[in-house]
Write a protein that binds this DNA or RNA. Structure first.
Length: 366
DNA sequence: TCTGGGGTCCTAGGACCC
DNA sequence: TCTGGGGTCCTAGGACCC
C-alpha cells in the first residue's frame, strides 16, 4: 500500500519570526544574521529581501550592498526554538511519525490519516491553517508517496505552497526539474552531472547506472532511484544526536595567543555543558581550525576515559592545538566538538559506570 | 563578493588483531 | 626469510543539508 508523506517547511523561518514579533519589520526587506563587518552571513531572508537577490548563506557584506534599506536582525535562536516546538507539537497532533530535519522543517508520515478517511488536500490545508492560526507562521507542504518527492514538492510551492504529487506521477513530475533539486546533489555533484550533459532530473533518470557511478561514486545507484521517484527510506522519529559542537569565526584572523586559547576554553565549556544537559559522554574530542586562507583541518583524539568535563575537553583540544600550530599561522575560525557517545552501563551495585575504552589506548597510558 | 554555525554521512588509508 | 585475508577501529577530509 502506498504511503503518504508530507514535507512541511516554514517559509523564511527566522526572518518571519522577526516580522511576527516586531510589526515594524513587516513588509520590509529583513535578514537575520551576523554583522557585515564581523564576517556575518545571511541565515534567513524575508521574501521582500529576496527580491533584491539576497539569499541564505550570502555574505552579509554583499547583502547590504544589494539593498540599502535592508534591516539586519541578529539571530534569536531561543525564540526560534520555542516556536519550532509549538509547530512540531501541531505536527505531532496529526501523527506520531514525524522526523524533524531542522527547526523549521519535518517529514510527516500521514498514511494512517489517509487510511482513516482524510483526503490528502484537505488534510494538508488543515495543517497549514492550524499552524497559521496558532502561531502566525506560514507553512509550505509537499505531499507524495515518499520523502524525496515530498521534499522537492514543498520546494516547488513556496511561499505558502501546497503541491501534491499523485501516486504514479512521480517520475513525470520530477523529469523537467534541474538535477540540483535532488536531495544530495550539491554544487560539486551538479557540475559533474553537467559535464556528462545531465542537467535535468529526467536526464539523470535516463542515464546508465554505470555512468552515474563513475560521476558520483557509490551514491550513483541511489541518485538514479531518486531521479525516477523511487525512495523507500522510512520516516524515522527520535533520531539520536551523534555529535555536539561549537565553533566561532573571529572578526579578524587571530594568531595563537591568549585570545585564541580563551576562545578554545569558552567553546569547550559550551560543548561540555550541552553534553551534560543531554546526558551524553563522548569518547572522541575534535579540534577544528580554519586558516586565514580558508584551508580547514580537524584533529581528533579518542579519550582513554570518556568525559564530558569542560576542563578535560579544553585540555585535550589545547594539546591538539599545541601539536599543529606553527609560528606565523593565523586562524579565522576555531571549533570544538565531541562524538562517539558512550552508553552508560549499570554495574552490579546499581551504580552507573562509564566503560573505559578502548583497552588498547588505556594500556598505552600505563 | 569573500565566504556562519549547527549537523549527517561517506571514503580511504593505516594500525591492529586473529 | 617472507609473508594472507578478513574484520574493526581510528583518523582526516570532503560533500551535503538547513
Amino acid at each position: 500500500m502506498a504511503r503518504t508523506i508530507f514535507h512541511a517547511d516554514l517559509d523564511a523561518f527566522y526572518a518571519s519570526v522577526e516580522q511576527l514579533d516586531n510589526p515594524e519589520l513587516r513588509g520590509k526587506p529583513v535578514v537575520v544574521g551576523g554583522p557585515p563587518e564581523s564576517r556575518g552571513v545571511v541565515a534567513a531572508a524575508s521574501y521582500e529581501a529576496r527580491e533584491f537577490g539576497i539569499r541564505s548563506a550570502m555574505p552579509m557584506s554583499q547583502a547590504v550592498r544589494r539593498c540599502t534599506t535592508l534591516v539586519r536582525v541578529p539571530p534569536r535562536f531561543d525564540r526560534y526554538g520555542e516556536l519550532s516546538r509549538e509547530v512540531m507539537a501541531i505536527f505531532r497532533s496529526l501523527t506520531p511519525l514525524i522526523e524533524p530535519l531542522s527547526l523549521d522543517e519535518a517529514f510527516l508520515d500521514v498514511t494512517n490519516r489517509i487510511d482513516g478517511g482524510w483526503a490528502v488536500e484537505p488534510l494538508a490545508r488543515h495543517l497549514k491553517k492550524r499552524v497559521r492560526d496558532d502561531t502566525g507562521l506560514v507553512l509550505s507542504i509537499g505531499a507524495g508517496t515518499n520523502k524525496s518527492i515530498a521534499k522537492v514538492a514543498s520546494d516547488m510551492g513556496k511561499p505558502d505552497g501546497l503541491v501534491i504529487v499523485k501516486p504514479g506521477r512521480e517520475a513525470s513530475f520530477l523529469a523537467p526539474l534541474p538535477a540540483r533539486l535532488l536531495w544530495g546533489v550539491g554544487p560539486k555533484a551538479e557540475a559533474k552531472l553537467r559535464s556528462a550533459g545531465l542537467r535535468t532530473i529526467g536526464d539523470v533518470a535516463e542515464a546508465d547506472a554505470a555512468v552515474l557511478e563513475r560521476l558520483v561514486g557509490s551514491r550513483g545507484v541511489q541518485l538514479g532511484e531518486l531521479s525516477r521517484g523511487i525512495d523507500e527510506r522510512p520516516v524515522v522519529a527520535e533520531q539520536a544526536r551523534k555529535s555536539i559542537g561549537a565553533e566561532t569565526t573571529f572578526p579578524q584572523d587571530l594568531p595563537d595567543g591568549p585570545q585564541l586559547r580563551s576562545a578554545l576554553h569558552t567553546l569547550s565549556a559550551r560543548v561540555a555543558e550541552r553534553a551534560q544537559r543531554d546526558g551524553k559522554t563522548p569518547r572522541t574530542v575534535v579540534l577544528k581550525l580554519r586558516y586565514a586562507d580558508f584551508r580547514t583541518i580537524t584533529r581528533q583524539t579518542t579519550l582513554a576515559a570518556p568525559s564530558n568535563d569542560g576542563q578535560v575537553i579544553a585540555n585535550v583540544v589545547g594539546g591538539l592545538l599545541d601539536s599543529i600550530v606553527s609560528p606565523g599561522d593565523e586562524f579565522r575560525l576555531i571549533g570544538v566538538s565531541c562524538t562517539q557517545f558512550v552508553e552508560p552501563e549499570a554495574t552490579e551495585d546499581g551504580a552507573i559506570a562509564l566503560p573505559l575504552w578502548p583497552a588498547r589506548e588505556q594500556s598505552l597510558l600505563l
